[in-house]
Simulated assay, not measured.
Amino acid sequence: MNTWPKDELRQIAESDDLHIAPFRENGRTYGTLTWIWSVVVDGELYVRGYNGQQSRWYQAAIRQKAGRITAAGMTKEVSFEPVEGAINDQIDEGYRRKYATSRYLAPMIGERARAATVKITPKD
């Protein structure tokens, strides 16, 4: 499995502009770019669906397992995988640090969004 170059991951972690586009059903066409919050925990990039598992981008990411993101002026081909377990506590803490002043923080660390946590890994 590929890992993020440290400099790229740092730039993504410091930005607030991650847009995600999983492949559509045909596996070749990218979906509409959707702006979402992201956090870095232990050298890995994570995102969550505000609307939980009902989020369209989440459903496509889990089905297709691939797509692209744009963040910090970069466009990257990526893989997606669902996340469960204790790492979610650390991801919650990452959201608390990065988005402490947002009124949307509570829903993003709530059960609905936690159930739609995705790890993003670069393909190249």
Score class of each variant (00 low, 15 high):
M1Y: 07
M1W: 06
M1P: 06
M1K: 11
T3Y: 10
K6R: 15
D7F: 13
D7I: 10
D7Q: 15
E8K: 08
E8M: 15
R10M: 08
Q11I: 12
Q11D: 08
I12N: 01
I12L: 07
A13I: 00
A13N: 14
S15N: 04
D17L: 01
L18Y: 02
I20G: 02
P22S: 08
E25N: 10
N26M: 06
N26K: 14
N26R: 05
G27D: 10
G27L: 01
G27F: 05
R28Y: 09
R28F: 07
Y30E: 14
G31M: 03
T32S: 10
T34H: 09
W35A: 12
W35P: 13
S38F: 00
V39R: 06
V40K: 00
V40I: 01
D42I: 04
E44K: 14
R48A: 02
R48H: 06
R48P: 08
G49N: 01
Y50M: 12
N51A: 13
N51R: 10
Q53P: 03
S55V: 11
R56Q: 12
Y58T: 07
I62Q: 13
R63V: 10
K65A: 14
A66T: 14
T70W: 04
T70C: 00
G73Y: 03
G73K: 01
M74E: 08
T75S: 12
K76L: 14
E77M: 12
E77W: 13
V78E: 09
F80L: 03
E81S: 15
E81K: 11
E84I: 08
E84N: 15
G85V: 05
A86W: 08
A86K: 11
I87F: 01
I87A: 01
N88W: 05
I91P: 09
R96A: 03
R97K: 11
A100R: 13
S102N: 12
R103A: 13
R103C: 06
L105C: 02
I109K: 04
I120W: 09
I120V: 13
T121Q: 09
K123I: 07
